[in-house]
């Protein structure tokens, strides 16, 4: 079995959204999400806007403090709220005498882990400090983690990082506003790579770029992974890109993970009605196949995460919804080896 680099167990992220006392409201951005990522693989995370993909990515790096849950990186517990069941490597709750086992409350200082876990942000225009040269943006991380012993070493490091992402060495003295979107995203990637991380959350790194540049950047991610043995969590809303880059894909809907499987398996044998609908929406280049392909169109809009539907969150738009769906939250089950889904009607669908 491949080694787990990162395990997310029962992760919750609720953001306060007004109201007082009893009536305090929360945006349930991430609700009981569990998954793991193996060393060297790419896990794709897809879903509509506002479904909690980005929040999941940021929360697992603890850029947001999780509301509840457990984060385990490379065998070390980074965060544990102490009130969620501990899972084994296969994502099943560990039972002791029929009772779920709980971990000890933990919250480690993330600074040493910032070296290992990095993130590439979605918006290459806003995520770089406009007052700093590109060299300093990349160099700052080197300084913080004391990765260069001399000025010369720092300089050389910055140069090689810039070259690594396809920028010129003279770009180091320029400011972010002098670059195009694609170049800025390269700067963002160089910045993330500056600390020699093992794991990178790619938070929609290509959705702000032109299509012609998207391919370049995706290929660069793949090359870097092959060279440096990186592990990615690749967040995107474009299924065709995710399909291309990921080993496994997770699908999120309204703060919940609804299905997770190997890329091939997920694309060709989806079991969750939401995944099926998503996949039917991927444009197909061949008109003949496209005509034969039936679009499963969903009706209505995504409900508000402030007040999500009871039971299964997808039930308001699901063609198979029954009373059971409103009453019970569907369990996260292993449908076939490594293929997980949460739905009451997998057989019907």
């Amino acid at each position: 079995m491949s080694e787990r680099l990162l395990k997310i167990e029962h992760l919750y992220q609720y953001f306060p959204a007004g109201g007082f006392g009893k009536h305090k409201k929360y945006v349930q951005a991430v609700d009981d999400v569990s998954f793991f990522i193996n060393k060297g693989e790419t896990l794709g995370l897809v879903g509509e806007s506002g479904c909690g993909k980005t929040t999941t990515g940021r929360t697992l790096l603890r850029l947001y403090e999780p509301t509840k849950g457990r984060i385990v990186y490379d065998g070390k517990v980074l965060f544990d709220s102490g009130d969620v069941p501990v899972m084994d490597d296969d994502g099943k709750d560990i039972l002791e005498n029929g009772q779920p086992k709980f971990g000890a409350k933990t919250s480690v200082d993330m600074r040493p882990y910032r070296r290992e876990m990095q993130i590439v942000f979605q918006d290459p225009y806003a995520s770089l400090d406009p007052r700093m040269t590109v060299g300093d943006i990349v160099g700052e991380a080197i300084d913080i983690h004391k990765l260069a012993s001399s000025k010369e070493e720092r300089y050389n490091k910055i140069q090689s990082l810039l070259q690594c992402v396809g920028l010129n060495s003279e770009h180091a003295n320029r400011y972010p506003h002098e670059f195009s979107g694609g170049q800025r995203q390269r700067v963002g990637i160089a910045r993330a790579l500056a600390v020699d991380p093992k794991f990178i959350v790619c938070d929609e790194p290509i959705s702000a770029l032109d299509v012609s540049i998207q391919a370049q950047v995706v290929n660069m991610f793949e090359d870097l992974q092959a060279e440096m043995g990186l592990t990615y969590l690749f967040i995107a809303h474009d299924l065709s890109v995710v399909k291309h880059i990921s080993n496994r894909i997770g699908v999120m809907y309204l703060g919940k993970l609804v299905e997770l499987a190997d890329s091939y398996e997920l694309i060709f044998h989806p079991v969750h009605p939401y995944t099926k609908s998503l996949i039917s929406a991927i444009p197909i280049a061949d008109p003949k196949t496209a005509r034969a392909n039936k679009r499963i169109a969903l009706e209505g809009d995504v409900p508000s995460p402030l007040n999500p539907p009871s039971g299964c969150r997808f039930r308001t738009r699901c063609p198979y919804a029954t009373e059971q769906c409103a009453a019970e939250v569907p369990k996260w089950r292993e449908v076939s080896a490594g293929h997980y889904a949460a739905c009451h009607h997998l057989e019907k669908a």
């Binding site: 993330m110 910032r114 806003a126 995520s127 400090d129 406009p130 700052e140 991380a141 913080i144």
Partner: peptide
């Protein structure tokens, strides 16, 4: 701003 989050991710 996003770059403040970037700084945090760097470990500043």
């Amino acid at each position: 701003q996003d770059y403040m989050r970037t700084a945090r991710a760097k470990g500043v």
